[in-house]
Amino acid sequence: MSDPRAQTLFRLRCAFVKHGRLAYLGHLEVLHTIERIVRRAGLPFAVTQGFSPHMRAGFASALPVGTSSDAEYFDLFMTEFVPVPDALERLRAAAPIDLAPTAVCYIDVHAPALTAAITRVMYRIAIDVADGYDIASERIDAAIAQLKEQGSIPYERGRKHKVLDLASTLVSWKVSALSDGGLELTLDTHISNDGSLRPEILLSATDRLLLGCAEDEGPIVSTGIQNLRTIRRYAICRTAQYVEDADGSLLSPLRTDETPSAPKSVSSVPSL
């Protein structure tokens, strides 16, 4: 017997930004806001069945408070097909500028979740060196190389002792001097169930190396935004997130080049 609740589902993937003041939103605040954007856009979202019905949607990994992004993603399960340009226009009209959707596409309903699919994350960190410190890009580069050599950075989050494993998460980095006198650090990182790279922990460890201070300072504490001494101010932006192909090449999670002309849909029973 077919389940009367079985619905034809469409899975819309949407890329959006997190810019400006809205970088200060927490992960849950972003999730709630996306849900409200979808409702305001009037898209035919699917609803989970069961005890507490809610919108069927999926998100990429959490972005810390204070970190901006050029490339965030969510998946929305819908009960009806809406043409791509129409869906994008409706989402954009219902979203604040600083959380604007930038592109949408349809993907296979059975494709892996965003958190499983995305394995590479790129960051750009703008750095203003504090007054009284003369730190050129080479010194930061050397400090990060030394940390990478050590392989890991211990830190505390709440009461938990944690370790940032640079060996498995830091793929490459580049430091360059900007024309305005500031520095720019770009990071290519690997993300998996085993761990991800929190850029502020790397920055905090770099700060300590640059100061040449010893271990007696106590552990690095993950507080979201670090108070650093050699760095007056920093701004982290997630610039891209990628799915790795079998041959190691990086694909956009939208994979617009692979999107079939007609949307894929299957008849399925919504999960409980």
Binding site: L22, T33, R36, V65, G66, P96
Partner: peptide, 22 residues
């Protein structure tokens, strides 16, 4: 806003102070 922005990273729940709501 430029005067309070440097304070936001140091306080709990910065979203209390950022406005730009829908």
């Amino acid at each position: 806003f430029a005067d309070i922005e440097p304070l936001l990273p140091r306080v709990e729940k910065p979203s209390r102070y950022i406005d730009h709501e829908w």
